[in-house]
């Protein structure tokens, strides 16, 4: 161990070594460990105003976790259906959005990697990236306007005669799902694109030469090869969708609350940082467990994703 650090310092010089260690240490400690540790600590303490922090009243308790389950700190008579159903709906919706993105992005990524050439491919990649130079909030508002009662989509459908009165895309969550699906689409496309692109073209041709129809080529050759990329994309989209705030806030209908909005309310409106922290921890842990479960189901190793 000592020899390793000695070698490390000799290789990079004293100044650079200190800088590297300090910045990596800052990143890991200040930006990852410390905030999570504070959140965990808050979530396990009673909710008291800041002046009383550190006093006896700021004692350890699991009441906020209990509240998530039972809707009360003391009784266990009834479940907290409001929060639990929002939580369940958020997870299910995030899965749904992930699947939509996968269905949309796999063909695009495959096309980009193996069919598009030269300038055309560059143009397509640019047109995928450029819209994301626009701020996330502005993009969400743009969706809101497009899907609004007087928006371009309703007007087009009215003009085409598909509907005879404006459809409420906002109330029916169509706008929300569209906005969320679009929000993280690049995080799905590029990992899949990278994975598919590294596939030897001859393998596709070999499968075709051996009589395989196109769908079996994908099932047996392309998808198995791209699995780490697919998993990586799905994980990121799922995590970020479940934790999204801006899109649900702007595009969500009055009745469709996102779990992050409940966390936001706890912090900013109810002034209950403890409950907010507990809920955030619950969301984080459940999402991680879900992802690990899926990776086990689809037989992907964590190391493959990080490739």
């Amino acid at each position: 161990m000592f020899a390793y650090w000695q070698n490390f310092f000799r290789k990079h010089g004293a100044a650079l070594s200190v800088f590297l260690l300090a910045s990596v240490g800052f990143w890991i400690f200040m930006m990852i460990l410390l905030p999570q540790a504070f959140m965990l600590d808050f979530s396990l303490r009673a909710n008291v105003p800041p002046p009383k922090w550190g006093s006896d009243a700021h004692h350890y308790t699991a009441e906020h976790y209990r509240y998530m389950l039972y809707g009360s700190a003391q009784s266990v008579d009834s479940y907290n259906f409001v929060d639990l159903s929002v939580f369940a709906r958020t997870i299910v919706a995030a899965i749904f959005v992930t699947l939509i993105d996968l269905a949309l992005c796999y063909p695009v990524a495959y096309y980009l990697a193996h069919a598009a050439t030269g300038g055309w491919r560059r143009l397509m990649v640019l047109s995928l990236i450029v819209p994301f130079w626009v701020n996330e909030l502005l993009r969400a508002f743009a969706f809101k306007i497009m899907f609004g009662g007087n928006g371009i989509i309703n007007n087009a459908l009215l003009w085409l005669g598909v509907i005879d009165q404006p459809y409420d895309f906002i109330r029916n969550s169509v706008a929300l799902y569209s906005g969320l699906s679009y929000a993280y689409i690049l995080l799905m496309i590029f990992p899949i694109y990278n994975a598919v692109e590294s596939l030897d073209r001859n393998q596709i041709e070999a499968a075709r030469d051996l009589g395989s129809p196109w769908w079996r080529i994908h099932k047996r050759v392309v998808i198995p090869h791209a699995k780490p990329g697919i998993t990586s994309g799905c994980t990121m989209v799922f995590m970020l969708t479940a934790g999204a705030l801006a899109a649900p806030q702007i595009l969500g209908g009055p009745s469709s609350l996102w779990f992050t909005q409940i966390i936001y309310q706890a912090f900013n409106q109810a002034g209950n940082w403890a409950r907010g922290s507990a809920y955030a921890i619950i969301l984080l842990v459940v999402c991680i467990l879900f992802v690990l479960l899926m990776m086990r189901v689809f037989k992907v190793k964590l190391g493959e994703i990080a490739r």
Partner: peptide, 11 residues
């Protein structure tokens, strides 16, 4: 026909 590729292209 069946083709054997230069790099074999085994799966």
């Amino acid at each position: 026909t069946a083709l054997i590729f230069q790099n074999l292209a085994l799966f």
